[in-house]
Design a protein around this nucleic acid. Structure first.
Lengths: 220, 220
DNA sequence: ATAACGTATTTTGTATGCAAAATAAACCCG
DNA sequence: CGGGTTTATTTTGCATACAAAATACGTTAT
Protein backbone atom coordinates (compact mmCIF):
# COMPACT_ATOMS: atom_id res chain seq x y z
CA UNK A 1 0.00 0.00 0.00
CA UNK A 2 1.40 3.31 -1.04
CA UNK A 3 -0.42 6.59 -0.45
CA UNK A 4 2.36 8.59 -2.11
CA UNK A 5 1.11 7.67 -5.54
CA UNK A 6 2.82 9.71 -8.15
CA UNK A 7 0.07 11.12 -10.29
CA UNK A 8 1.47 13.19 -13.06
CA UNK A 9 -0.93 16.11 -13.36
CA UNK A 10 -3.16 16.05 -16.45
CA UNK A 11 -1.87 18.06 -19.37
CA UNK A 12 -4.68 20.60 -19.28
CA UNK A 13 -3.83 21.37 -15.67
CA UNK A 14 -0.15 21.84 -16.48
CA UNK A 15 -1.05 24.00 -19.43
CA UNK A 16 -3.39 26.08 -17.28
CA UNK A 17 -0.61 26.65 -14.76
CA UNK A 18 1.80 27.67 -17.47
CA UNK A 19 -0.74 30.06 -18.98
CA UNK A 20 -1.50 31.53 -15.57
CA UNK A 21 2.20 32.18 -15.14
CA UNK A 22 2.50 33.80 -18.56
CA UNK A 23 -0.46 36.05 -17.83
CA UNK A 24 0.66 36.86 -14.32
CA UNK A 25 4.17 37.76 -15.45
CA UNK A 26 2.77 40.04 -18.09
CA UNK A 27 4.34 38.03 -20.88
CA UNK A 28 0.80 37.67 -22.14
CA UNK A 29 -0.40 41.21 -21.67
CA UNK A 30 -4.04 42.14 -21.07
CA UNK A 31 -5.94 42.25 -24.33
CA UNK A 32 -3.66 39.80 -26.09
CA UNK A 33 -5.41 37.27 -28.27
CA UNK A 34 -4.64 33.68 -27.40
CA UNK A 35 -3.83 32.00 -30.68
CA UNK A 36 -4.41 28.32 -30.21
CA UNK A 37 -2.04 27.01 -32.86
CA UNK A 38 0.72 29.33 -31.74
CA UNK A 39 0.40 28.37 -28.08
CA UNK A 40 0.14 24.71 -29.00
CA UNK A 41 3.42 24.85 -30.85
CA UNK A 42 5.15 26.79 -28.10
CA UNK A 43 4.04 24.34 -25.45
CA UNK A 44 4.19 21.23 -27.53
CA UNK A 45 0.66 20.05 -26.85
CA UNK A 46 -2.38 19.56 -28.99
CA UNK A 47 -5.33 21.91 -29.04
CA UNK A 48 -7.59 19.80 -26.87
CA UNK A 49 -5.80 20.20 -23.53
CA UNK A 50 -4.94 23.80 -24.40
CA UNK A 51 -8.56 24.64 -25.00
CA UNK A 52 -9.59 22.92 -21.78
CA UNK A 53 -7.04 25.02 -19.95
CA UNK A 54 -8.34 28.19 -21.56
CA UNK A 55 -11.87 27.35 -20.43
CA UNK A 56 -10.60 26.99 -16.88
CA UNK A 57 -8.85 30.33 -16.96
CA UNK A 58 -12.03 31.85 -18.33
CA UNK A 59 -14.07 30.77 -15.32
CA UNK A 60 -11.25 32.07 -13.15
CA UNK A 61 -11.67 35.37 -14.92
CA UNK A 62 -8.11 35.57 -16.23
CA UNK A 63 -9.16 35.34 -19.85
CA UNK A 64 -12.31 36.35 -21.64
CA UNK A 65 -13.97 34.11 -24.19
CA UNK A 66 -15.14 35.68 -27.41
CA UNK A 67 -17.43 33.28 -29.27
CA UNK A 68 -15.93 32.21 -32.57
CA UNK A 69 -13.03 34.52 -31.95
CA UNK A 70 -11.20 32.66 -29.26
CA UNK A 71 -10.03 34.23 -26.05
CA UNK A 72 -8.14 37.32 -24.96
CA UNK A 73 -6.28 37.99 -21.75
CA UNK A 74 -8.87 39.85 -19.74
CA UNK A 75 -8.30 43.53 -19.17
CA UNK A 76 -8.47 44.67 -15.56
CA UNK A 77 -10.04 48.10 -15.59
CA UNK A 78 -9.92 50.78 -12.94
CA UNK A 79 -13.55 49.97 -12.18
CA UNK A 80 -12.64 46.34 -11.60
CA UNK A 81 -9.98 47.36 -9.11
CA UNK A 82 -12.42 49.73 -7.44
CA UNK A 83 -14.82 46.81 -7.05
CA UNK A 84 -12.26 44.30 -5.88
CA UNK A 85 -10.41 46.29 -3.22
CA UNK A 86 -13.32 46.71 -0.76
CA UNK A 87 -13.99 43.00 -1.06
CA UNK A 88 -10.38 42.22 -0.32
CA UNK A 89 -10.48 44.58 2.63
CA UNK A 90 -13.42 42.70 4.13
CA UNK A 91 -11.89 39.32 3.51
CA UNK A 92 -8.38 40.17 4.67
CA UNK A 93 -9.95 41.71 7.74
CA UNK A 94 -11.84 38.53 8.41
CA UNK A 95 -8.71 36.48 7.83
CA UNK A 96 -6.79 38.62 10.29
CA UNK A 97 -9.51 38.41 12.91
CA UNK A 98 -9.42 34.64 12.72
CA UNK A 99 -5.63 34.42 12.48
CA UNK A 100 -5.16 36.60 15.56
CA UNK A 101 -6.83 34.01 17.79
CA UNK A 102 -5.60 30.92 15.99
CA UNK A 103 -1.97 31.33 15.07
CA UNK A 104 0.67 29.80 17.27
CA UNK A 105 3.48 31.87 18.69
CA UNK A 106 6.13 30.21 16.55
CA UNK A 107 4.15 30.99 13.41
CA UNK A 108 3.86 34.59 14.54
CA UNK A 109 7.58 34.70 15.20
CA UNK A 110 8.20 33.52 11.67
CA UNK A 111 6.04 36.32 10.33
CA UNK A 112 7.91 38.82 12.49
CA UNK A 113 11.15 37.63 10.91
CA UNK A 114 9.81 38.00 7.41
CA UNK A 115 8.47 41.40 8.39
CA UNK A 116 11.96 42.42 9.48
CA UNK A 117 13.31 41.27 6.13
CA UNK A 118 10.65 43.32 4.43
CA UNK A 119 11.62 46.42 6.36
CA UNK A 120 15.23 45.88 5.30
CA UNK A 121 14.14 45.65 1.68
CA UNK A 122 12.19 48.85 2.18
CA UNK A 123 15.19 50.65 3.61
CA UNK A 124 17.44 49.41 0.83
CA UNK A 125 14.80 50.42 -1.71
CA UNK A 126 14.59 46.87 -3.09
CA UNK A 127 11.14 47.15 -4.59
CA UNK A 128 10.68 43.68 -6.02
CA UNK A 129 11.91 41.88 -2.92
CA UNK A 130 9.78 44.19 -0.82
CA UNK A 131 6.65 43.19 -2.71
CA UNK A 132 7.58 39.53 -2.49
CA UNK A 133 7.96 39.54 1.27
CA UNK A 134 4.94 41.82 1.63
CA UNK A 135 2.79 39.40 -0.28
CA UNK A 136 4.17 36.47 1.68
CA UNK A 137 3.21 38.10 4.96
CA UNK A 138 -0.35 38.69 3.82
CA UNK A 139 -0.56 35.12 2.60
CA UNK A 140 0.74 33.72 5.86
CA UNK A 141 -1.72 35.76 7.92
CA UNK A 142 -4.61 34.71 5.74
CA UNK A 143 -3.51 31.10 5.90
CA UNK A 144 -3.30 31.53 9.66
CA UNK A 145 -7.07 31.84 9.63
CA UNK A 146 -7.21 28.13 8.92
CA UNK A 147 -9.90 28.82 6.35
CA UNK A 148 -8.79 27.44 3.00
CA UNK A 149 -11.84 28.74 1.15
CA UNK A 150 -10.99 32.21 2.40
CA UNK A 151 -7.41 31.82 1.22
CA UNK A 152 -8.56 30.71 -2.22
CA UNK A 153 -11.11 33.50 -2.54
CA UNK A 154 -8.61 36.18 -1.58
CA UNK A 155 -5.94 34.75 -3.88
CA UNK A 156 -8.29 34.75 -6.82
CA UNK A 157 -9.20 38.40 -6.28
CA UNK A 158 -5.65 39.38 -5.44
CA UNK A 159 -4.38 37.89 -8.69
CA UNK A 160 -6.54 40.25 -10.70
CA UNK A 161 -5.49 43.37 -8.83
CA UNK A 162 -1.87 42.39 -9.00
CA UNK A 163 -2.12 41.91 -12.73
CA UNK A 164 -3.18 45.52 -13.09
CA UNK A 165 0.37 46.44 -12.01
CA UNK A 166 -0.40 49.78 -10.46
CA UNK A 167 1.78 49.08 -7.48
CA UNK A 168 5.04 50.05 -9.10
CA UNK A 169 4.14 53.71 -8.91
CA UNK A 170 4.16 53.92 -5.15
CA UNK A 171 5.21 57.23 -3.68
CA UNK A 172 7.71 57.31 -0.84
CA UNK A 173 4.99 58.49 1.56
CA UNK A 174 2.47 55.78 0.78
CA UNK A 175 5.23 53.24 0.93
CA UNK A 176 6.32 54.47 4.34
CA UNK A 177 2.75 54.38 5.51
CA UNK A 178 2.30 50.83 4.24
CA UNK A 179 5.38 49.73 6.16
CA UNK A 180 4.21 51.33 9.39
CA UNK A 181 0.82 49.70 8.98
CA UNK A 182 2.62 46.41 8.60
CA UNK A 183 4.44 47.07 11.84
CA UNK A 184 1.07 47.61 13.53
CA UNK A 185 -0.25 44.42 11.98
CA UNK A 186 2.52 42.33 13.44
CA UNK A 187 2.10 44.00 16.82
CA UNK A 188 -1.63 43.25 16.83
CA UNK A 189 -0.88 39.69 15.79
CA UNK A 190 1.65 39.26 18.60
CA UNK A 191 -0.92 40.68 21.01
CA UNK A 192 -3.54 38.26 19.61
CA UNK A 193 -5.86 41.21 19.17
CA UNK A 194 -8.41 40.22 16.49
CA UNK A 195 -10.33 43.50 16.34
CA UNK A 196 -7.22 45.59 16.04
CA UNK A 197 -5.67 43.36 13.40
CA UNK A 198 -8.90 43.39 11.43
CA UNK A 199 -9.10 47.18 11.59
CA UNK A 200 -5.51 47.61 10.48
CA UNK A 201 -5.88 45.21 7.59
CA UNK A 202 -8.96 47.03 6.37
CA UNK A 203 -7.15 50.34 6.73
CA UNK A 204 -4.18 48.86 4.92
CA UNK A 205 -6.24 47.99 1.87
CA UNK A 206 -7.74 51.48 1.97
CA UNK A 207 -4.20 52.89 1.85
CA UNK A 208 -3.53 50.64 -1.12
CA UNK A 209 -6.65 51.93 -2.83
CA UNK A 210 -5.60 55.53 -2.37
CA UNK A 211 -2.15 54.74 -3.72
CA UNK A 212 -3.53 52.98 -6.76
CA UNK A 213 -6.09 55.61 -7.61
CA UNK A 214 -3.48 58.29 -7.13
CA UNK A 215 -1.05 56.65 -9.53
CA UNK A 216 -3.91 56.06 -11.95
CA UNK A 217 -4.80 59.72 -12.09
CA UNK A 218 -1.18 60.59 -12.73
CA UNK A 219 -1.04 58.19 -15.64
CA UNK A 220 -4.00 59.79 -17.34
CA UNK B 1 -24.86 48.18 -38.23
CA UNK B 2 -26.53 45.95 -35.72
CA UNK B 3 -25.36 45.71 -32.13
CA UNK B 4 -27.98 43.07 -31.32
CA UNK B 5 -25.94 40.39 -32.94
CA UNK B 6 -27.41 37.00 -32.32
CA UNK B 7 -24.55 34.93 -31.04
CA UNK B 8 -25.65 31.44 -30.23
CA UNK B 9 -23.63 30.55 -27.18
CA UNK B 10 -20.87 28.01 -27.76
CA UNK B 11 -21.82 24.43 -27.03
CA UNK B 12 -19.47 24.06 -24.10
CA UNK B 13 -21.11 27.05 -22.44
CA UNK B 14 -24.59 25.64 -22.96
CA UNK B 15 -23.43 22.28 -21.66
CA UNK B 16 -21.87 23.91 -18.61
CA UNK B 17 -25.13 25.69 -17.85
CA UNK B 18 -27.10 22.50 -18.20
CA UNK B 19 -24.70 20.62 -15.96
CA UNK B 20 -24.80 23.39 -13.39
CA UNK B 21 -28.58 23.10 -13.36
CA UNK B 22 -28.46 19.33 -12.98
CA UNK B 23 -26.04 19.62 -10.08
CA UNK B 24 -27.91 22.47 -8.43
CA UNK B 25 -31.23 20.65 -8.65
CA UNK B 26 -29.71 17.60 -7.06
CA UNK B 27 -30.42 15.48 -10.12
CA UNK B 28 -26.69 14.89 -10.15
CA UNK B 29 -26.13 14.26 -6.48
CA UNK B 30 -22.82 15.00 -4.71
CA UNK B 31 -20.37 12.19 -5.24
CA UNK B 32 -21.91 11.08 -8.54
CA UNK B 33 -19.42 10.14 -11.22
CA UNK B 34 -19.82 12.07 -14.43
CA UNK B 35 -19.70 9.47 -17.18
CA UNK B 36 -18.70 11.25 -20.36
CA UNK B 37 -20.31 8.89 -22.86
CA UNK B 38 -23.52 8.77 -20.90
CA UNK B 39 -23.80 12.55 -20.60
CA UNK B 40 -22.85 12.98 -24.24
CA UNK B 41 -25.68 10.76 -25.35
CA UNK B 42 -28.17 12.45 -23.02
CA UNK B 43 -27.25 15.89 -24.26
CA UNK B 44 -26.57 14.97 -27.84
CA UNK B 45 -23.11 16.49 -28.02
CA UNK B 46 -19.67 15.08 -28.53
CA UNK B 47 -17.16 14.62 -25.79
CA UNK B 48 -15.04 17.66 -26.60
CA UNK B 49 -17.48 20.40 -25.53
CA UNK B 50 -18.67 18.27 -22.64
CA UNK B 51 -15.16 17.89 -21.34
CA UNK B 52 -14.51 21.60 -21.71
CA UNK B 53 -17.65 22.26 -19.69
CA UNK B 54 -16.56 19.85 -16.99
CA UNK B 55 -13.20 21.65 -16.71
CA UNK B 56 -15.05 24.91 -16.20
CA UNK B 57 -17.24 23.47 -13.47
CA UNK B 58 -14.11 22.10 -11.85
CA UNK B 59 -12.55 25.53 -11.49
CA UNK B 60 -15.88 26.73 -10.16
CA UNK B 61 -15.62 24.02 -7.56
CA UNK B 62 -18.86 22.26 -8.49
CA UNK B 63 -17.13 19.13 -9.64
CA UNK B 64 -13.86 17.56 -8.64
CA UNK B 65 -11.44 16.18 -11.18
CA UNK B 66 -9.89 12.83 -10.47
CA UNK B 67 -6.97 12.26 -12.82
CA UNK B 68 -7.61 9.34 -15.15
CA UNK B 69 -10.88 8.73 -13.38
CA UNK B 70 -12.93 11.61 -14.68
CA UNK B 71 -14.93 13.87 -12.43
CA UNK B 72 -17.41 13.57 -9.59
CA UNK B 73 -19.93 16.09 -8.34
CA UNK B 74 -18.07 17.66 -5.45
CA UNK B 75 -19.23 16.84 -1.97
CA UNK B 76 -19.89 19.79 0.30
CA UNK B 77 -18.83 18.78 3.78
CA UNK B 78 -19.79 20.29 7.10
CA UNK B 79 -16.28 21.72 7.28
CA UNK B 80 -16.80 23.42 3.92
CA UNK B 81 -19.98 25.04 5.17
CA UNK B 82 -18.22 26.09 8.35
CA UNK B 83 -15.57 27.75 6.23
CA UNK B 84 -17.95 29.40 3.80
CA UNK B 85 -20.50 30.95 6.15
CA UNK B 86 -18.17 33.44 7.89
CA UNK B 87 -16.98 34.55 4.47
CA UNK B 88 -20.54 35.05 3.31
CA UNK B 89 -21.30 36.97 6.48
CA UNK B 90 -18.47 39.40 5.76
CA UNK B 91 -19.41 39.78 2.12
CA UNK B 92 -23.15 40.13 2.64
CA UNK B 93 -22.38 42.64 5.35
CA UNK B 94 -20.24 44.63 2.95
CA UNK B 95 -22.91 44.39 0.28
CA UNK B 96 -25.53 45.68 2.69
CA UNK B 97 -23.34 48.54 3.84
CA UNK B 98 -22.89 49.66 0.26
CA UNK B 99 -26.50 49.03 -0.71
CA UNK B 100 -27.82 51.06 2.21
CA UNK B 101 -26.27 54.24 0.84
CA UNK B 102 -26.72 53.49 -2.83
CA UNK B 103 -30.15 52.01 -3.44
CA UNK B 104 -32.93 54.26 -4.65
CA UNK B 105 -36.22 54.50 -2.79
CA UNK B 106 -38.17 52.72 -5.51
CA UNK B 107 -35.76 49.81 -5.43
CA UNK B 108 -36.15 49.65 -1.68
CA UNK B 109 -39.92 49.74 -2.05
CA UNK B 110 -39.71 46.79 -4.38
CA UNK B 111 -37.71 44.85 -1.82
CA UNK B 112 -40.26 45.75 0.84
CA UNK B 113 -42.97 44.28 -1.35
CA UNK B 114 -41.07 41.06 -1.88
CA UNK B 115 -40.39 40.98 1.83
CA UNK B 116 -44.13 41.18 2.49
CA UNK B 117 -44.69 38.31 0.10
CA UNK B 118 -42.03 36.35 1.94
CA UNK B 119 -43.75 36.95 5.26
CA UNK B 120 -47.00 35.67 3.77
CA UNK B 121 -45.25 32.52 2.60
CA UNK B 122 -43.85 32.14 6.10
CA UNK B 123 -47.29 32.49 7.67
CA UNK B 124 -48.80 30.02 5.21
CA UNK B 125 -45.89 27.65 5.83
CA UNK B 126 -44.98 27.61 2.13
CA UNK B 127 -41.38 26.56 2.56
CA UNK B 128 -40.22 26.50 -1.05
CA UNK B 129 -41.73 29.84 -1.96
CA UNK B 130 -40.36 31.28 1.25
CA UNK B 131 -36.84 30.26 0.30
CA UNK B 132 -37.30 31.60 -3.20
CA UNK B 133 -38.35 35.07 -2.05
CA UNK B 134 -35.78 34.99 0.73
CA UNK B 135 -33.02 34.32 -1.73
CA UNK B 136 -34.33 36.99 -4.08
CA UNK B 137 -34.21 39.62 -1.34
CA UNK B 138 -30.62 38.80 -0.49
CA UNK B 139 -29.72 38.93 -4.16
CA UNK B 140 -31.39 42.29 -4.66
CA UNK B 141 -29.67 43.80 -1.66
CA UNK B 142 -26.29 42.52 -2.79
CA UNK B 143 -26.92 43.78 -6.30
CA UNK B 144 -27.89 47.09 -4.73
CA UNK B 145 -24.26 47.45 -3.75
CA UNK B 146 -23.51 48.09 -7.40
CA UNK B 147 -20.49 45.83 -7.09
CA UNK B 148 -20.76 43.04 -9.64
CA UNK B 149 -17.62 41.28 -8.47
CA UNK B 150 -19.13 41.13 -5.01
CA UNK B 151 -22.36 39.69 -6.42
CA UNK B 152 -20.45 37.03 -8.33
CA UNK B 153 -18.27 36.12 -5.37
CA UNK B 154 -21.23 35.74 -3.04
CA UNK B 155 -23.21 33.75 -5.60
CA UNK B 156 -20.38 31.34 -6.11
CA UNK B 157 -20.08 30.68 -2.38
CA UNK B 158 -23.81 30.65 -1.85
CA UNK B 159 -24.27 27.99 -4.52
CA UNK B 160 -22.09 25.59 -2.59
CA UNK B 161 -23.85 26.09 0.72
CA UNK B 162 -27.23 25.79 -0.93
CA UNK B 163 -26.21 22.55 -2.55
CA UNK B 164 -25.59 21.09 0.87
CA UNK B 165 -29.36 21.29 1.42
CA UNK B 166 -29.40 21.69 5.15
CA UNK B 167 -31.96 24.44 5.09
CA UNK B 168 -35.00 22.19 4.89
CA UNK B 169 -34.61 21.20 8.52
CA UNK B 170 -35.37 24.61 9.95
CA UNK B 171 -37.10 24.69 13.30
CA UNK B 172 -40.04 27.01 13.82
CA UNK B 173 -38.00 29.16 16.19
CA UNK B 174 -35.05 29.70 13.91
CA UNK B 175 -37.47 30.37 11.08
CA UNK B 176 -39.27 32.98 13.11
CA UNK B 177 -36.00 34.55 14.05
CA UNK B 178 -34.87 34.66 10.43
CA UNK B 179 -38.07 36.41 9.45
CA UNK B 180 -37.75 39.02 12.18
CA UNK B 181 -34.15 39.64 11.17
CA UNK B 182 -35.39 40.19 7.66
CA UNK B 183 -37.85 42.74 8.96
CA UNK B 184 -34.95 44.55 10.64
CA UNK B 185 -32.97 44.38 7.42
CA UNK B 186 -35.65 46.12 5.43
CA UNK B 187 -36.07 48.74 8.14
CA UNK B 188 -32.36 49.48 8.14
CA UNK B 189 -32.44 49.66 4.37
CA UNK B 190 -35.35 52.09 4.40
CA UNK B 191 -33.49 54.17 6.96
CA UNK B 192 -30.35 54.04 4.76
CA UNK B 193 -28.41 52.91 7.78
CA UNK B 194 -25.30 51.11 6.48
CA UNK B 195 -23.82 50.08 9.81
CA UNK B 196 -27.08 48.69 11.09
CA UNK B 197 -27.79 46.78 7.88
CA UNK B 198 -24.30 45.37 7.89
CA UNK B 199 -24.62 44.23 11.49
CA UNK B 200 -27.98 42.59 10.88
CA UNK B 201 -26.77 40.77 7.78
CA UNK B 202 -23.78 39.42 9.66
CA UNK B 203 -26.03 38.37 12.51
CA UNK B 204 -28.41 36.81 10.00
CA UNK B 205 -25.72 34.55 8.60
CA UNK B 206 -24.76 33.64 12.16
CA UNK B 207 -28.36 32.56 12.76
CA UNK B 208 -28.17 30.49 9.62
CA UNK B 209 -24.98 28.87 10.84
CA UNK B 210 -26.57 27.91 14.13
CA UNK B 211 -29.57 26.48 12.32
CA UNK B 212 -27.45 24.44 9.98
CA UNK B 213 -25.14 23.08 12.63
CA UNK B 214 -28.15 22.27 14.79
CA UNK B 215 -29.85 20.29 12.07
CA UNK B 216 -26.56 18.61 11.27
CA UNK B 217 -26.14 17.34 14.81
CA UNK B 218 -29.68 15.99 14.74
CA UNK B 219 -28.99 14.09 11.55
CA UNK B 220 -26.00 12.32 13.07
C1' DA C 1 -7.79 56.30 -54.95
C1' DT C 2 -11.23 54.22 -52.36
C1' DA C 3 -15.25 51.56 -51.38
C1' DA C 4 -17.38 47.33 -51.96
C1' DC C 5 -17.54 42.84 -53.23
C1' DG C 6 -15.86 38.16 -53.60
C1' DT C 7 -12.34 34.78 -52.80
C1' DA C 8 -8.54 32.66 -50.15
C1' DT C 9 -6.52 31.80 -45.82
C1' DT C 10 -6.47 31.48 -41.15
C1' DT C 11 -8.63 30.39 -36.87
C1' DT C 12 -11.98 28.60 -34.08
C1' DG C 13 -15.64 25.00 -32.88
C1' DT C 14 -16.98 20.29 -32.83
C1' DA C 15 -16.55 15.42 -33.84
C1' DT C 16 -14.02 11.34 -34.16
C1' DG C 17 -10.11 8.14 -33.50
C1' DC C 18 -6.46 6.05 -31.00
C1' DA C 19 -3.61 5.00 -26.86
C1' DA C 20 -3.23 4.58 -21.91
C1' DA C 21 -5.25 3.99 -17.64
C1' DA C 22 -8.79 2.16 -14.73
C1' DT C 23 -12.52 -0.92 -13.85
C1' DA C 24 -14.86 -5.24 -14.37
C1' DA C 25 -14.82 -9.98 -15.40
C1' DA C 26 -12.94 -14.39 -15.94
C1' DC C 27 -9.84 -17.58 -14.53
C1' DC C 28 -6.55 -20.14 -11.93
C1' DC C 29 -4.61 -21.96 -7.86
C1' DG C 30 -4.55 -22.67 -3.05
C1' DC D 1 -15.04 -21.84 -2.06
C1' DG D 2 -12.01 -17.65 -1.64
C1' DG D 3 -8.02 -14.80 -2.71
C1' DG D 4 -5.24 -13.24 -6.13
C1' DT D 5 -3.71 -12.81 -10.84
C1' DT D 6 -4.55 -12.32 -15.64
C1' DT D 7 -7.46 -10.89 -19.39
C1' DA D 8 -11.29 -8.28 -21.40
C1' DT D 9 -14.04 -4.16 -21.37
C1' DT D 10 -14.93 0.29 -20.33
C1' DT D 11 -13.56 5.00 -19.65
C1' DT D 12 -10.62 8.64 -19.75
C1' DG D 13 -6.80 11.55 -21.92
C1' DC D 14 -4.87 13.42 -25.86
C1' DA D 15 -4.32 14.07 -30.83
C1' DT D 16 -6.07 14.62 -35.21
C1' DA D 17 -9.58 15.63 -38.77
C1' DC D 18 -13.30 18.09 -40.58
C1' DA D 19 -16.77 21.98 -40.70
C1' DA D 20 -18.02 26.70 -39.87
C1' DA D 21 -16.92 31.15 -38.86
C1' DA D 22 -13.94 35.08 -39.04
C1' DT D 23 -10.14 37.54 -40.92
C1' DA D 24 -7.10 38.91 -44.64
C1' DC D 25 -6.40 39.73 -49.26
C1' DG D 26 -7.02 40.99 -53.92
C1' DT D 27 -9.92 42.50 -57.52
C1' DT D 28 -13.20 45.37 -59.66
C1' DA D 29 -16.06 49.24 -60.25
C1' DT D 30 -17.12 53.88 -59.25
Amino acid sequence: MNSNVIVRAPLHVQVAERLRLLIDSGELAPGTRLNENELCQNMGVSRTPLREAIRSLATEGLVELQPNRGAIVSVVSQDDVTEILPIMASLEGLGGRLAAVQMHTDQIKQIRQIHNQMVTHYQKNEVTKYFETNRLIHELITEGSGNQTLVDTINSLSAKVRRARFSAQMTRESWERAVSEHEEMITALEASDPNRLEAILIQHVETKRTTILGSLQQSQ
